[in-house]
């Protein structure tokens, strides 16, 4: 015979299943990023992650307009830049605010911003892959906040669908792929952005 404790457990389980079937799926993207194997620039860089980047969350809506997936990727973006920038520059200082840059004696301040995030799910595209596109606005400022360079970078990542792989794992892997793509593209093209190239040349002359 069912005891009151068993009934309570069963009711709780049913409620949990019902709620989890209807609610939004939250996902915090997690990944690890290798340090780039490149020539280092002998300068000190300040890096400023604004609140928008730190807390960046993308919401994917269903066809009926309901929230389907809530994907938080701000922390993993910071993790990527914290892995890539120290390999690119002799010294990197993470700034709490832009005003503290002169006191930290940095040569420039890098402030990345996510402009757009797109997700393609296999159940919607009918392709056998999860895909993520991200568009960034990269800004390089002088220690006093003056403009040095401002350029757009895009990144793309995909991961194939697999039996027994959850949707969350597929989204996570595709996002990490897009971030690796950003890291490789950023490190290899940084010195080729015309304004950055001119600034680097001026720094070498000093």
């Amino acid at each position: 015979m069912a005891t009151p404790k068993m009934l309570r457990t069963l009711t709780g389980l049913c409620l949990f299943l019902a709620l989890s079937a209807c609610g939004v799926n939250s996902l915090v993207v997690e990944g690890s990023y290798p340090s780039p194997n490149i020539r280092q620039i002998p300068l000190t860089l300040g890096v400023y992650y604004d609140e928008e980047l730190r807390d960046f969350t993308y919401v994917e809506y269903s066809e009926t307009g309901k929230e389907e997936y809530r994907i938080a990727s701000g922390q993993t973006h910071m993790q990527l830049f914290n892995s890539v920038l120290p390999a690119m520059f002799e010294k990197v200082v993470v700034l709490d605010d832009l005003a503290s840059a002169p006191a930290q004696q940095v040569d420039a301040v890098f402030a990345p911003r996510i402009e757009e995030f797109q997700l393609a799910l296999p159940q919607k595209t009918h392709l056998d892959a999860y895909e993520v596109w991200v568009k960034y606005n990269m800004r390089l400022l002088g220690p006093g906040g003056e403009y040095i360079a401002d350029w757009v970078l895009t990144s793309y990542g995909k991961t194939p669908t697999e039996t027994l792989r959850s949707v969350e794992a597929g989204i996570n892997d595709a996002t990490v792929g897009a971030l690796r793509d950003l890291g490789s593209n950023f490190t290899l093209t940084f010195g080729t952005v015309p304004e950055v190239r001119d600034w680097l040349a001026s720094q070498q002359q000093q």
Binding site: P36, G183, S184
Partner: peptide, 12 residues
């Protein structure tokens, strides 16, 4: 691929 990052990524 990790040791050679960013030279052997899909795009590079």
């Amino acid at each position: 691929i990790d040791a050679m990052f960013p030279w052997f990524e899909p795009r590079t």
